[in-house]
Structure formats: structure tokens, C-alpha cells
Amino acid sequence: MTDRKPSGKRLLYMGVGGLTLAALLVANGIAARTRHERDVTAWTEAAAVPMVSVFQPTQNAAGDTLRLPARLEAWSKAPIHARVSGYLKDWKSDIGSQVQAGQVLAQIDSPDLDQQVAQAHAHMLQEQANARLAQTTATRWKNLVNTHSVSQQEADEKSSNAAAAQANAQAAEADFARLSALEAYKTIRAPFSGTITARNTDIGQLVKADSDSDPELFDIADTHQLRLYVPVPQNYASVIRPGLQVQLSVPEHPGKTFSARLVGNSTAVDARSGTLLAQFVADNPDNALLPGDYAEATIPVPADTHGVSIPASALIFRAKGTQVAVLDAQKHVHLRDIHIGLDLGERLVIDQGLKPADTVIDNPPDALREGDLVKLADAGEQHARKA
């Protein structure tokens, strides 16, 4: 069987067909690659536009509350020290005892003071006798002057001696009165009605008068009312107004609140803490509140129609200061300077820079810049309603 060679014309057709097929394949490949690059570019551009959640500020028309740490102190409290030295003879009241003003708490045995009082009394009697004698002598010499029996100079000397003796008698009387008053401090009494909160002495203990190194003998506190001290940050100082009522809670009574009313404030901001110290008074008829307690005070913040409320997560802190990002109708970003009127923790009251009609970005990305285009997340409307 003999092989037949293809004709030249057929070979030409075959070559042209192959080239045409190759060209079509190349064209299809280029077109597919172009479409892919276009799709990638479109996806990249779409991905480059940040997705954000937005909300609209709300007016603080209903007011708010501010929770601050506070401390409770007794209405009156006093450490009781000894005014005379000696040994404690006995004590009448222990810790937890309710005492009345003037009630005896303890007695001090002070024989040294007793002897000083006796000596001062004797010295007073002696000086009084000398004063009477000097006065009698001065009177006699004055009468002798009238008869020219003595000179006027001698009579004047006797009058001066009488005056000096009278002054010595008065000094002795004052010294005796001082020691007698000091002797009264041998009996230690309650300065006011209250509760004994500490007893740091016992029978037979040596007591030293006016010693800073020794502890007080007793501590007494009046707890029928308690003072509530609240350090209020400077930003909230305007909230402290006459007639203000606050609620307070203490850890030992969870879920229970007590009422306190404002009695005054320091009228000055502490430079170290930047706070204004406000003092409230809380009634404590059942002694549920304890002096020295840590407490949390809830202070009402009045309504403010001039400011708007936003979540703290919307803030931007940069070199230009505190800002927020707002959107225009074309969804372009504009960074706006604001002023924080009140910081309520998770929420802020802005009194400058925002209006209720503004659209604000929540949790703005760090790379967000002025004029950037953004798109809204699906949850944006829900978040706006919550804000």
C-alpha cells in the first residue's frame, strides 16, 4: 500500500487554521485576564472604602446620674486623752457602749496632783493673810500722815506694799483655781452623747498627761447622723447646688440605698486631685451606716438641652485634640472638634461641636482621614436607634 502525500494547498489551509485557532486562544486569554484584573481592581477599590457604623446624638433632656466613690464619717468624733498624770483607777464604759454627755468613762488616781492642790490652797491662804495685814498697815499709816506722825513717803510705801500683797493673793488664788480645775480631769467624762468606738487603757495603767506618744484612752463617735464626703471632679462642680439630694449605698447592705442632703462644699478645687469636696448629711436612726464606711454616691445630673449625648467609643484622640468623625450627605468624613461638658463614663455630654442632626461614626478606624469616603454597615441604623 503506497503512502499519499498531502497537497501543498491542503497544507496551507491547515497552517492557516492552526494560526487562527492559536490567535483565538490568545485573544480569549487576554480578554479573560483583562476581565480578572478589572474585577480585582473593582474589588480592591471597594475593599479600600471602610465600613462604619453611625448614630445621631441625642439631647440630654431627661437628665442623668453620676456615681462617685465617697466615705462616711461620724457627725462628731473625739479621741479622749488624759489631762492629768497618774494611774487609771477604773473605767466605766467599754467599746460599743452608748453614753450620754457628761457620763463618767473612767477615773484617774493622781496623788501628786492632790498634793499640789493642797499646797496651792495653803499658799493662797498665806497670801490672803499677808494682803489683809498689808492693807491694815497701809490704812494706819495713812491716818498717821494726817497727824504728821509719819512722812507721806512712808505712807505711800505702805500703800504700795498693800497693793503688791493683794496682787500676790490674787495670783495664788488663780493658781489654786487652775489646779482645782485640773483636778476635775481626774474624772474622765463623755464630751457628747455617742458610742464608745475604742478603749485603749485598763485598770492600773500609767497615764501621762498631754503625751503625743501615748494613744488616746477612749474614742467616742456620735452616729445618729453621718457626714458623707464626696470628692466631685471639677467637670461636675456645677452639679453641686443648694438643696441637692443624693442616694448612697454601702457594701454591707447590697441593694439598699440611703438618702443624704447637701450641707456644704469646700468652695475650692483641690489642686492635687482636681476635685471639689462636697459634704452631705445622712440620718442614721438605726445605726445601719457605720463611720469610716466606703460608700458610693449617686448624684442626679440635671437635664441639659444645650448639650448632646454620645457614646465614649466615638471619640478620636489625635494631636489636634478631642474630635469626632461626622458624615455629610455624600458619605464623606469630616473631623470635627468638640468639647466634653460631662464625662459620665460610657456616655459623654458634648456642649460644643455637635448637633442632634449630625451623623457621627462610632468606633472610627485609626486610619480615618478628612474627606475619606465610607460606606455604612447594616447595623448602623440599629445602633443609631440605641444611641
Rank of each mutant, 00 (worst) to 15 (best):
S180E: 13
D210M: 12
L182A: 12
F192L: 00
T187G: 08
L179D: 09
A171Y: 01
S160V: 10
E183M: 13
A167L: 15
K208D: 08
N168Y: 11
R178M: 02
L182E: 13
A177K: 07
D212A: 13
R178I: 00
Q166W: 13
K158P: 02
L206W: 03
S160T: 09
S160M: 10
K186P: 09
A165P: 03
Q166R: 07
G204F: 14
A162F: 06
Q166K: 09
D175G: 03
I203M: 09
D212F: 13
T187A: 12
K186V: 05
A174E: 02
Q170N: 09
A177W: 08
N200R: 03
T201H: 00
L182N: 07
A198Y: 03
P191M: 10
T197Q: 02
Q166H: 12
G194K: 03
A174Y: 07
A162D: 01
A169P: 07
G194S: 06
F192E: 00
K158T: 06
Q166E: 15
A184K: 04
P191Y: 11
A172H: 05
G194D: 01
A167Q: 12
K208Q: 13
Q170R: 11
E173F: 11
K208M: 09
T197F: 14
N161D: 15
A177P: 02
A209N: 04
I203A: 08
Q170M: 08
D156P: 02
S160N: 10
S211H: 03
G194W: 10
K158Q: 11
A163Q: 13
G204R: 06
T197V: 14
R199V: 15
A190I: 09
G194I: 04
D210T: 01
G194Y: 08
E173D: 15
A209D: 06
E173Y: 14
A165S: 11
T197E: 09
A169K: 03
